[in-house]
Amino acid sequence: MRWQVALLWLAACLLANPAQAHKPSDSYLALAVDGRAVNGQWDIALRDLDFAIGLDANGDAAITWGEVKAKHAEIDAYALARLRLGSDGADCPTQVTDHLIDDHTDGAYAVIRFRADCPAPVGVLEATYRLFFDIDPQHKGLLRLEYGGAASTAVFTPEKASQRFTLEKPSALGQFLDYGREGVWHIWIGFDHILFLLALLLPAVAYRQAGKWEAVAAFRPAFVSVLKIVTAFTIAHSITLSLATLKLISLPSRLVESTIAASVVAAALNNVFPLFRERRWAMAFLFGLIHGFGFASVLADLGLPQQALALALVGFNLGVEAGQLAIVAVFLPIAYLLRRTAFYRRLVLIGGSLLIAALAAVWLAERAFDLKLLTF
């Protein structure tokens, strides 16, 4: 019974926030330090600003440039009251210089450009970030900091709202680890990626005979099945992640996100109406190519240091693999122990696959037709 509860708990965690299927609430803060001046650009999702201060004046569920422009002063006041920049204990007063709108992979963002002037040349930059933390504790601020031709990254969370940055050229190891952590984090909060992988892994501890799922007799066949799937997925998304990051191939964001949702539907339904049967590794490779474009969009949003492009790319990709292997390491032993139970074969394997397919079908409709069906 303990293993059944554990598996249900794992499934609940994976489905805990389905409305944010691919990207949770993030903002993108870019700072460039030059002597006493700090030039910044802050991209904040319109949907988050609408929730916080209300942008949709006429309530038609479509935020226009006019509605955003009318709220510029309120947006500035709200955002900048939640960002403090300083140096040597002294504040660096901030002034907005421009407003724009930009499209990210998950929708439109308000762009605030600003300049902060510090009392003296900045040696150590102090930053406190508290945007949306009071209304969304899952929100993150993704920082890209440039100084002297080098770039580094950081993440603001409620637990790490205040950070200090010594302005020196970041080490290659530091950049590698920064992007590695981002890769791990992205796979863990990328619910569509997780559910695609989970849908492929659910049958790994079983085989189909006479139209029914039966438990495998030993651990080795299950492990080999998982190894094939994970390897195929890794090779495929590594190929397209690299090609997209190097700007050799580019696909429209809506096409990529819609196809990712469709891949989750296909992988889940394959467990109920087998098409690929034991060739799930082929499905992992085929759709893994599309998932790689999804990973690339996140990496692009983080900003890539051109002087260490290959290092950042490898670090992020290895982080994705580490996060993926951590999920497999938790799932496989539990699934193997439960494989002989009707609970696993009927409720988890079949019922779970149908639930995943239904949820992903909603994502597909939302992404393909620009709808908002899930509001929780």
Rank of each mutant, 00 (worst) to 15 (best):
G141M: 00
L201W: 07
Y207P: 02
E67W: 05
T97E: 06
C118N: 01
Q138F: 13
L255S: 11
E321N: 12
S27Q: 08
L374M: 15
G89A: 04
V184E: 04
D98V: 06
D34W: 12
G190V: 03
R82S: 04
A52Y: 09
A284P: 07
F233A: 05
I350A: 08
A120N: 07
Y336M: 15
D102G: 10
G89C: 05
T166I: 13
I135E: 06
I334Y: 06
F219D: 10
L198K: 01
L125F: 12
H99N: 05
L15T: 14
W363M: 03
R115H: 06
L198Q: 04
R339P: 09
I350V: 13
R113T: 03
N317D: 01
C13A: 13
I194V: 15
R345G: 00
D134I: 14
I334T: 14
L227A: 15
F293P: 04
D91K: 10
K228T: 11
D192N: 01
I249R: 04
V111Y: 05
D34K: 14
L29S: 02
A108G: 09
G123I: 07
L354S: 03
F191P: 10
A61T: 09
N39E: 12
V124K: 12
L200E: 06
L241F: 09
G59R: 05
A360H: 00
L46I: 08
A335C: 09
L202Q: 07
V298P: 03
L15S: 11
L31A: 07
I260G: 03
P252N: 09
L248P: 00
Q41R: 15
G180R: 00
L248T: 04
L80Q: 09
S238I: 02
T341M: 01
R113H: 01
P305K: 10
L286H: 05
R144D: 10
T128K: 15
G86K: 02
V362H: 05
A261P: 04
L125V: 12
V230N: 05
I350N: 07
I53T: 03
E159T: 05
A312T: 11
L125S: 07
T153P: 06
R2N: 15
L354E: 00
K212M: 10
F51H: 10
S297T: 12
Y336A: 15
H237L: 10
S258N: 01
S258D: 01
I53V: 08
G180M: 07
A154V: 01
A267V: 11
N317C: 01
I235C: 12
L10N: 08
D76C: 11
S250W: 08
E74S: 15
G180H: 02
L347G: 08
L167G: 07
D134R: 06
P24Q: 14
A266F: 15
